[in-house]
């Protein structure tokens, strides 16, 4: 492809999202990112949207702006996500709704609207975010894992529904990575998770980016509906 890739990354303000934005911008992509709050950084080739991924009209407006600016969308990376560690007996309804809204509804809305733009050029790469908490059935993460299990289901079914449109849909399932998402998790909990992995260490941004970049390669046109867990979780 001679034209630079047009990439949308949700939750791009910090952590893995910011790291991916920097990586794609560095390789010459036209990167559009979003979060509810403005980032405190700028990079060349990057455009930020103040978008709440759980708000349908805001998501539509963001995709519409991307269409006006670039006329197409090649890659969507649904990185935006929140977590909350609670025993199920102590999980408030508001927390359940918030996690499902951001992790599942947000991923669904951005994928749906993004795919509408992608199908015009019969090409697209969508990457969703699951977690090793799904296969490891981590205690204390019931709602978080359930929201990501829903993401896995929609990944696999969207892959079938969008295959004829040239759009692939896959998911990466990271282990704990040093980000804000896990800063409130006690160290012994993290150690327990790592001890359950085939490769016993925390994940890195590079580990996540490696899988995301594989899924989003043009050559990965025959890879869809897959969930890849890092660290050997299964």
């Amino acid at each position: 492809m001679t034209d630079p890739e047009v990439v949308l990354i949700t939750g791009a303000r910090k952590g893995i999202g910011r790291d991916l934005a920097e990586r794609y911008a560095a390789r010459g992509a036209l990167v559009e990112g979003c979060s509810r709050e403005a980032p405190d950084w700028q990079i060349e080739g990057y455009q930020h949207h103040l978008t709440d991924v759980t708000d349908e009209s805001q998501v539509r407006a963001m995709i519409s702006a991307i269409k006006k600016r670039h006329g197409r969308l090649d890659i969507v990376i649904n990185n935006a996500g929140i977590a909350s560690m609670n025993h199920i007996l102590l999980t408030p309804l508001a927390t359940i709704n918030r996690i499902i809204a951001t992790n599942f509804v947000g991923t669904t809305l951005v994928s749906r609207e993004g795919a509408k733009l992608m199908q015009r050029s019969r090409y697209g790469r969508i990457v969703n975010f699951s977690t090793v908490a799904v296969p490891l059935r981590l205690q204390g993460e019931a709602i978080y894992a359930a929201s990501k299990a829903a993401v896995e289901s929609i990944t696999r079914i969207m892959a079938r529904e969008l295959g004829d449109l040239g759009i692939t849909v896959n998911a990466v399932g990271p282990t704990p990575v040093e980000t804000d998402l896990i800063k409130a998790v006690p160290p012994d909990k993290i150690k327990n998770i790592i001890d359950g992995m085939a490769i016993k260490r925390l994940g890195t941004f590079e580990d996540v980016a490696n899988v995301v970049e594989f899924f989003t390669r043009r050559e990965s046109s025959y890879v869809t509906g897959q969930v890849v867990y890092l660290g050997g979780a299964s």
């Binding site: 519409s64 269409k67 509408k116 015009r120 449109l165």
Partner: peptide, 18 residues
């Protein structure tokens, strides 16, 4: 499905409404 999506996009570009 493609026609419905296409029409939504045509309406937006020709009429300025979503």
């Amino acid at each position: 499905v493609t026609l419905v999506v296409d029409l939504e996009q045509r309406v937006e570009s020709e009429h300025g409404v979503v």
